[in-house]
């Protein structure tokens, strides 16, 4: 079913009402909610191939709501991380990759697949699965993105370091040792530093690729709190293998399977009243 057909399915009906009345159907392959509120980006018919010719993303269309947290869930190998990495063109670092379709940034209406990947990465920030601070001081890490953009005024930098570290809920822990090496911090602190580093350049979209999978439960809880606080301020797209985490921190959730988008819905609806049988199988643990 194409995005257009999907769109027709819901014409004229408020999504929530229908969500309450309809139950998962064996026959429904896809379901897609048209969210209320401003969009920050819209993905249309995105396909992606790796250099060896394998297709990892197959005709995915979904919106990204402005200043909200959108989670991507699905079994391993379903393409959720690959999809996320299309948003900052990280794949372009490797040879032979191919895209088709579009990821339009709104309201500019620019397809980021057609932009210079370097410019895309200046506008779309990313935090990786494994904390990857630079082997430099905490301060140097936070200002790394600013230095790349040629900002070097000490006063400006100091101010941004403080606000970014506060946003990342790290300021109180590190304010007295900003000149210490970042690698001397715990894994959870390193990951929050990576978030601060990404926030310091005010990304239009912040991508989080399983940011807590390498962390212990306490560090994970801190990152989740932090993501909750970002909701309403920053547009966040997060990949997680942990459904409870998606339920706790996101406003919208996409369920992906085998490179396709199965269901996109408000998080509450997706977890309480999934619209597709396959979503229900996955979230109830019958599959995946």
């Amino acid at each position: 079913m194409s995005a257009n057909e999907m769109a027709e399915n819901r014409i004229g009906q408020p999504a929530k009402m229908r969500a309450q009345s309809e139950r998962p159907s064996e026959t429904r392959e896809h379901w897609y909610l048209e969210p209320e509120g401003t969009l920050r980006a819209r993905v249309s018919n995105l396909k992606f191939w790796y250099g060896d010719g394998t297709q990892a993303i197959d005709d995915v269309s979904m919106p990204l709501v402005d200043k909200q947290v959108t989670a991507l869930i699905g079994p391993s190998g379903c393409g959720k991380s690959t999809f996320l990495r299309c948003f900052n063109r990280m794949h372009d670092l490797y040879q032979g990759v191919k895209y088709s379709g579009s990821i339009k940034l709104l309201p500019e209406d620019e397809n980021l697949i057609d932009l210079d990947p370097n410019i895309v990465r200046m506008r779309v920030g990313m935090v990786f699965q494994k904390p990857n601070p630079f082997p430099k001081s905490i301060y140097e890490n936070v200002i790394a993105g600013l230095k790349i953009r040629g900002i070097s005024k000490r006063g400006v930098l100091d101010e941004i370091v403080e606000t970014s570290l506060r946003q990342a809920a790290l300021w109180d822990e590190v304010k007295d040792r900003l000149d210490q090496p970042a690698l001397s911090m715990s894994g959870g602190q390193q990951q929050r530093l990576c978030i601060a580093r990404a926030l310091a350049v005010q990304p239009e979209i912040l991508l989080l690729d399983e940011p807590t999978s390498a962390l212990d439960p306490i560090a994970t809880a801190k990152i989740e709190d932090l993501i909750n606080q970002l909701s309403g301020k920053v547009t966040v797209l997060i990949v997680t293998h942990n459904m409870q985490q998606a339920a706790r921190i996101s406003n919208y959730t996409s369920y992906m399977y085998l490179g396709k988008l199965i269901e996109y819905n408000e998080t509450d609806s997706l977890f309480t009243r999934p619209m597709c049988q396959r979503t229900e199988d996955y979230i109830t643990g019958r599959f995946g």
Binding site: N88, R121, M126, F128, P133, A144, K147, A198
Partner: peptide, 27 residues
């Protein structure tokens, strides 16, 4: 040099020369 370092630099918007001169060569 682990690819994480390279991706961290590119992910922040560094171009190839900045990635090389600021992060890869020093490491």
């Amino acid at each position: 040099i682990p690819s994480e370092l390279r991706e961290a630099a590119y992910g922040l918007g560094a171009n190839q020369w900045q990635t090389m001169s600021m992060y890869i060569i020093p490491a």
